[in-house]
Design a protein around this nucleic acid. Structure first.
Lengths: 200, 200
DNA sequence: TAGATTTCTTAATCTAGATCAATTGTTATC
DNA sequence: GATAACAATTGATCTAGATTAAGAAATCTA
């Protein structure tokens, strides 16, 4: 039960839960330890699960026709992650989901989620609220892609994912920012150079 | 009551509603006719309402420090629109919301929405599902900004908003795509030029 | 229907970031 | 601890799209 503590406390931030309800919820969940660089979802497959990140870091990414990876989102502790279109419509996923470091995740299958919505309707409140916040975060990201330069987007990334930059390879950050690793490298050293100047 | 028909039918696609519930819902809504270029929300104010577009077209946009407008989303018939962060947290909005053409909208205030969630809990299902789809759409847009060129993004825009391009000025489309009006103009004529070649 | 305002186009020049290619660091693996 | 595989840097060149500036169309509005 300890493994589900963090998720349950996240639920209880939004609504009270009885001991029975908690037990019911946990009975529908799968806890998993996954090591670095394991693929949880691949394009072509169906996203049968939505994934709660209990520890570690995952990412969702897309590979375009030229074979270039584009990271749409990182999932760190407390994040829910899935190819939502595939999960909702049981159609083919277009995104990969992969661990970036050794991670612990909690899986909730589409069917189990549907059952839980039936049995504990107030879970709709929880997911409604989760999605509200996801929408808000995605709006920020869209805005950032629309009107910020790569260096500003990097600063926003640092805000959004504190300390993550030291945990993951920088070509992944580049793929999240939408620049090449080469450009990111140059940009980073330029920013470090300019920083002392700004401080003066 | 006729004015709310489309919204109610949209609700009923997701769940059955009794006559009483429908009446209750309608009693919490405000129907409004607004003419072109009216501003419904401004940065600095709080987004007290979420807006259902019954007819016409609105857009949400941001103005950056240089005074350049960036359109994050268009709202056409059936869309819900608000500065979600401001609406949820009653904090200052950062986005404008404005009509692009004469429009009819339905306003639902934050307080009334909360009341309705209390009185008709299954509305949580509706909004949960609406937000799921919004998240999916925003994922698409993020991906598009990350890995498509402006001309490809334009084609995606046409798919996403059929016929809208003929209804709105093209500098608005440019601001949605994230390019200057000048570049958009040139790109468009280049695309028209290249089209016949592709057909051969 | 004329003038004013807004929108769109075209051209010249400029820049953020891409691409290609080579080099150096850093991690894994046997 | 040597070799291979992967990650990061650096430099030269190229391009999508920005900027500035001007004029042409289209639209309002009186």
């Amino acid at each position: 039960m300890k493994e589900f503590e963090y998720l349950l406390s996240s639920l209880e931030k939004h609504m009270p839960l009885t001991a029975y309800e908690k037990k019911l919820i946990v009975s529908k969940l799968i806890y998993k330890h996954i090591s670095k660089r394991e693929i949880l979802l691949k394009p072509g497959n169906v996203a049968n699960y939505t994934i709660f990140v209990n520890n570690g870091c995952l990412r969702q990414y897309f590979i375009n026709v030229e074979g270039v990876e584009h990271t749409t989102v990182f999932g760190v502790r407390g994040y829910w992650l899935t190819d939502i279109n595939s999960f909702l419509n049981k159609c083919e996923a277009k995104f990969y989901i992969e661990t970036v470091e050794d991670s612990e995740v909690i899986l909730l299958s589409n069917d189990n989620q549907a059952e839980l919505f039936e049995l504990i309707p107030k879970l709709n409140i929880y997911f409604r609220m989760i999605y509200e916040r996801v929408v808000s975060a995605k709006d920020e990201r869209i805005l950032s892609m629309l009107c910020s330069r790569a260096d500003e987007r990097f600063l926003q990334f640092l805000q959004c994912y504190p300390n993550l930059d030291s945990r993951i390879p920088q070509y992944l950050i580049a793929s999240y920012l939408g620049v090449t690793p080469e450009f990111f490298s140059r940009m980073k050293s330029k920013m470090a150079q300019d920083l002392p100047k700004n401080k003066k």
